[in-house]
Design a protein around this nucleic acid. Sequence first.
RNA 1: GCCCGCAUGGGGUAGCCUGGAUAUCCUGGGGGCUUGCGGAGCCUCUGACCCGGGUUCAAAUCCCGGUGCGGGCACCA
Length: 593
Amino acid sequence: MYQDIKENIRGILRNAVGEVIKPEELHESELCDLTSTVAFRLAGGLEKNPKELAEEIVDRIKTAKIGVDKGGEPPYLAEEITGRIEPCKFIRKVEAVNGHINIFLNYSEIILPTIREIRVMGDGYGRGKPREEKIVLEHTSINPSGPVHVGRLRNSLIGDSLVRILRFYGYKVETHYYVNDIGKQIAIIALGMKEGIKPDGDAAKNYMGYKDKEDFKILFHYISANREFESNPEFARRVQEFIKDAEEGNPTALDEISSVARRCLDGQRKIFHSMGIEFDFFDFESDWLREGKIKPVLEFLKKSRYFKTTDAGSGLDLSKFGLEREGGVSILTRSDGTSVYLLRDITYHLDKAKRGDLMINVLGEDHKFEFREIKTILQKFYHLPTLIEAVHYSFVNFEGDSLSTRKGQIAPVDRLIDEALDKAAKEIEKRKIAGKEVAPAIGLGAIKYHILKTSPHKPINFSWKRALDFDGDTAPYIQYAHARCCSILRKSDINLDSIDNFDKNLDKEEEELLFNLIKFPGVVENSALERKPNLTANYLYALAHSLNRFYRKCPVLPAEQGVKERRLLLVDATRQVLKNALNLLGIDAPERM
RNA sequence: GCCCGCAUGGGGUAGCCUGGAUAUCCUGGGGGCUUGCGGAGCCUCUGACCCGGGUUCAAAUCCCGGUGCGGGCACCA
């Protein structure tokens, strides 16, 4: 609808001006609905500030009629163009102000087709047309050496939301979780457990409430085994041997290490599951070793003229591609011949590439360099046709105490969620409108929205308190708007399907609300193409805010029949769009809260 | 040292790609709204484009140079 309106108006402007209007020359404005700056471009070699000219011009307009070709100043041109605009059903009014052509939409004409579209499409309103391309999206991929840290949550949330947005936009999307179940950290834990090193008692005490969760148990073992690894060279040597053993395909060693990772993953998956985040595939690194997939990759790269062997190990010299490492080489294998992550990652991506047309990896900005290496190798050495891109996000810092650094002092997502659920349950209890069962929707929603609303490339200073905030620019605020819609609709006995003729004189608040409703499909598109869930989040707040303003100023149920019908339709449409957009962020829209 | 990203009221944040009018919104602080559909709300006041140049009629937005912060440049992943 919005696209149609804009195209329509661009066409009308083109007729008035005699030239094509560029898309960026028609945009939204706070002073009207849509504004065009085309007069500035047409003015060409202009010397004065259009604002200074404005008054003078308006006077001249009154006294003389001059053609576009005679008066070059934008304010004059804007007046002239405005005068030539043909009447159109979407436009209510056009004004020339300071060189801008300000357009006010005719909402009386827009409301019916918009509402109809939303009602027909329902949960699918805003959906893009089906696309052929298949996207293989990898996100989260946390090391299986402990519980999920709050800082890592940003990856999962951006990833999960992007999946939802890209699917809604029309792509086929398959999600992958890469399990590094054979790395050094895991080997340390596995050997520690095998040799009977006791789990760390302090850590276990700190997380009493979670002591039976597998990922926490692994963490307790990790802390003590890692201490051993750092202080006991003999143990460290045995770890290295253990890894080598596994890499050479010794099935016992592989199983011993991998099973520790799988146990930990079980615990991690529980927390993702409770957040509504699911994955299509878990890809285990140990499988590459079992299936002998790494060796051929190494053999292939060895033949390259960029392959070099140094004291540090063997690898590729990528400096020709602008990727210079300090040692001059991107290491693929250690000097003892065992592979490092880069080689295994290449193997993994070669495999993944077969599954789709585009690979998207959600990665922290600390992986930028590594990602460029992989991309370069895939494209320059393998000439891979599959596209590959990364969605990078900035770090999540903690306010005050750096919980993340002290040994064993981590900030597990489990704890954050438990606190959020507690707080939500208390708020619900206070209001006595809904039952406890909506606590997860509200608590999880608050956390998700808090992290998703910020643009990915900006660092977040994570504040436990603000993440659990329920007022202002938060998910509960948006959910509340949704619940209000539901509440009104519950109390009405009018069958919305049978309304065919209603009063179409909208109040200002209704116009704002409607304008937001028609923008939604465009927001989905931008979010999908720019890979930015925060655009959807920001939109949601604006929509909820306009609903709340409407709610305050425009009584629905007490209104007279024609007005009441119109407002009920608007409320129902808003409910639908809030729900659809919340779903793109993985946030539930409870009907009561 | 080199490379990448970021910098907007007291705190947080949108806008920057595609330059246009009076810079968005949240929070905090001040003031108001409630016997009207759910006050997790609404209205109002307060307060900001890091610094210096450049391009332009016009710069938060584009270019150059600083400064500050984050990240990277591992036989860790």
